[in-house]
């Protein structure tokens, strides 16, 4: 299998920021050791999901692959990685 890291894109647009996205940039600090090596965290300029909250849910948003996590928290990201990726 290809040794590609899972990209976690945290939206750092103003809307997400006002809803507390800055907290998630400290995600790595609380990440379990076994996950740290397989992920990559990137801040993104506004991903635009806030313009269509009916479809995407409420900010802040985090994008992992095709999955958009709304009302994201560090805990939700870790939960997603551990359950769906079986990491």
């Amino acid at each position: 299998m290809e040794n590609k890291k899972i990209l976690i894109e945290i939206c750092a647009g103003t809307t997400c920021h006002v809803y507390g996205s800055s907290q998630m940039f400290l995600l790595e600090e609380i990440m379990p050791e076994k996950l740290k090596n397989v992920i990559e965290i990137e801040g993104r300029t506004c991903l635009g999901f806030c313009k269509n909250q009916k479809e995407f849910g409420k900010p802040p948003y985090v994008k992992i692959g095709d999955r958009i996590i709304s009302e994201a928290t560090s805990a939700k990201i870790i939960e997603y990685l551990t359950t769906l990726h079986n990491l």
Partner: peptide, 17 residues
Amino acid sequence: FEELGALFVGKGIDTAA
């Protein structure tokens, strides 16, 4: 700052853009 943030979002301003 919290209120200013609300004004930005209310007006659709993305500061980084």
